[in-house]
């Protein structure tokens, strides 16, 4: 029972990170029908940006204010990078065949990855200990303050995003643009603005995910975006790509699944089982868990 509860706690933590990152994939896909392969590398970049903000801007302070400021600044920097990415890599190809945009996405991914290596070097860097190492031992199940913060903050952000998309006017514009861009334009919706907005939201959430990876695993490398990006991408597909609650569900599920595989089988097998899970779900539900769409009459 101990191992179950322990892996539950670990799984929810990594699941939250997967979910935050998966939201970036799913939102961009929802509106643009494009897999933004550079998203994982943006997540990695965020951890390095956070590191630099900590050492250069905050003077290595770890006060609550400094930590909050690091999160906001890193999210703001990554949001700007996200807008630039859309402008430079995707907007010029909006009318081009979809394969061109995919190639552009892969190119952007390599560029960002190599950019990180040029700026911060190829060796592993250690992310600062922004949050004190506080642990609680509850009947043999160890939970850290970092885990609690990651889970609480992720859930808060996801609820906020859900309410924004479902309840606000701009949220309605996002949903309309995801369904039919021309029809959205006929409503007076500026689709370019919507696309910029989803890149801002997706990149900021990804940035928070990147900082969480740094906080939780401590060691950050220039090419870690590939791995986390892939997991988050799988999470988005599991939940039904294009579907926002789906990405949240998929992320949490994948995190729990990997934690239980690591706990009961072996962590070396986690990747293999992840793909087996993906294949099984796609066989049973090709559109993902929540990816069901009402047929539209023509």
């Amino acid at each position: 029972m101990d191992i179950f509860l322990q892996q539950l706690a670990n799984g929810l933590t990594i699941g939250s990170i997967f979910a935050l990152v998966a939201l970036g994939y799913t939102m961009v896909y929802g509106v643009m029908k494009l897999i933004n392969f550079a998203h994982g590398d943006m997540v990695a970049a965020s951890a390095f940006v956070g590191l630099t903000i900590y050492t250069q801007v905050m003077g290595q302070a770890t006060s609550l204010f400094a930590v909050i400021a690091i999160f906001f600044l890193a999210a703001a920097v990554m949001a700007c990078v996200g807008i630039m990415l859309e402008r430079l890599a995707y907007r010029p190809l909006r009318e081009a065949p979809r394969l061109s945009a995919v190639v552009s996405a892969l190119g952007a991914s390599l560029m960002i990855q190599n950019g990180i290596m040029l700026i911060w070097g190829p060796q592993m860097r250690i992310f600062p200990e922004l949050i004190p190492q506080v642990y609680w031992d509850i009947n043999g199940v160890v939970i850290s303050l970092i885990q609690v913060i990651i889970l609480a903050l992720s859930v808060t952000l996801m609820i906020a995003l859900y309410l924004f998309v479902e309840k606000t006017r701009m949220g309605a514009a996002i949903r309309a643009s995801a369904i039919d861009q021309d029809a959205a334009r006929l409503m007076g919706i500026n689709v370019n603005k919507v696309i910029a907005l989803i890149f801002i939201i997706g990149s900021s959430l990804g940035a928070v995910g990147g900082l969480f990876i740094g906080l939780y695993y401590r060691g950050i490398t220039f090419n870690m975006g590939w791995q986390y990006g892939l997991y988050a991408f799988i999470a988005a597909i599991l939940g039904g790509i294009g579907n926002i609650p789906g990405a949240m569900l998929g992320g949490m599920m994948l995190g729990l699944f990997q934690a239980f595989i690591a706990g009961y089988v072996s962590s070396t097998w986690a990747d293999a089982f992840t793909f087996i899970l993906l294949i099984l779900i796609l066989i049973v539900r090709p559109t993902g868990l929540l990816g069901e769409r009402v047929a539209e009459k023509v």
């Binding site: 309309a176 029809a183 959205a184 409503m187 769409r293 009402v294």
Partner: peptide, 15 residues
Amino acid sequence: KVFGILTVEENLMLG
């Protein structure tokens, strides 16, 4: 070109 996965009311609000 109605927004098929939105409700009638949401479609009108988008209008």
